[in-house]
Design a protein around this nucleic acid. Structure first.
Lengths: 189, 189
DNA sequence: AGAACAACCGGAGGCACCTCCGGTTAACCT
DNA sequence: AGGTTAACCGGAGGTGCCTCCGGTTGTTCT
């Protein structure tokens, strides 16, 4: 019986995986232009094959990189609900979502690919975001301020659509207007 | 004085340009997967350099290919206004827009790139679409059924966002729901 | 017609993506 | 400790994107 309970794979594999995530994180946030995955692999000291085995698609890597931050974003939904009426909380959360994406073009592309590809990609990101939105919508429906016939997945799709189109800083205002419009459609009466 | 009034460049250049458009049109609509521009050039019997000189970006080629069809789509806005109340006309036009894009993933990508890039790309496509939407919005505002404080460019961006996220046939329903939501936000009272 | 030149042609080349598979090695078992 | 093996490693290679520039040709002017 091993002392360690299921080491979950080889040690070198885990080390490489973490190294790749760290390097990618730095490259994504530092770089102003599109990051080359080959460069990430090289800087992490592994071959390109290793990178692709750990992260079969670019999106998979991006998702792993932003796992923690996305968790905080989703948690914020419940926290906002404790401080504001549901409809206001939803609107605030939308801004947080836009902020979250703002510095991470990679993330916007990844999310769009995830939704548009539409394969059975039950991605974790999509799941978490839908759950967060659902909490907000349910609270609003219970309070009577938001419509009850809206699907959380649709709102996530809408938000991803907005940020996919409004990627540049100077388009931030437009994103705000579109989210306002969305809210107008979501309110009751 | 030449009989022809300004031949607009060399004859072979024009021939090649048209050939590229024809081949690309066939390739875009026939192909199920992403089209290789190298393949288009080869099938048109020209070098890749010639293709890129005529169409500096992939978007430029796509725009040229769908010029006529897009013109018809934009004309439809005015025709719809002659047959339906403005708000209904707008909603119908949104469906036409989605249909237009449906068989042309290339077009959706091109439009998104055009809007997101946000450079001074005063593209013809963007211009025409905005004009069509503006007619619909203005008519609705005059009739009092639609809000008057909405910018046509925002609606175009929203529609492009929707179709960028709902590209697959099975996501067509979701696109419809999002457009309904958008309309709810646009109506007055 | 013939010359001169601006415009056009086309492919080689550099970069990045992603796949595939033979060699290597950490983990486990006896 | 030593053997077995499943899992991992990594880079060569095929494809597509896009640029660049020397050679070619249609057009125009005399």
């Amino acid at each position: 019986m091993a002392a360690t309970d299921r080491p979950r794979g080889r040690a070198d594999a885990q080390r490489n995986r973490q190294r790749l995530i760290d390097v990618a994180h730095r490259a994504f946030t530092t770089g102003d232009t599109k990051v080359s995955l080959e460069a990430v692999a090289k800087e992490a000291g592994v071959g390109i094959g290793t990178l692709y085995r750990h992260f079969p698609t670019r999106e998979a890597l991006v998702e792993a990189v932003y796992l923690a931050e996305r968790g905080r974003l989703c948690d914020a939904a419940d926290e906002l609900l404790a401080q504001q009426p549901p409809d206001q909380a939803l609107r605030t959360w939308m801004d947080r979502f836009a902020d979250y994406i703002a510095t991470k073009r990679e993330m916007a592309d990844a999310l769009r690919a995830l939704i548009a590809d539409g394969t059975v990609t039950r991605s974790r990101a999509r799941e978490e975001l839908s759950t967060a939105v659902r909490h907000l919508l349910d609270a609003g429906a219970a309070a009577g301020t938001l419509r009850a016939d809206v699907q959380a997945e649709d709102i996530v799709a809408a938000l991803v659509g907005v940020v996919s189109v409004c990627t540049l800083p100077e388009q931030r205002e437009q994103a705000g207007r579109l989210m306002d419009l969305l809210m107008d459609g979501l309110r009751r009466g």
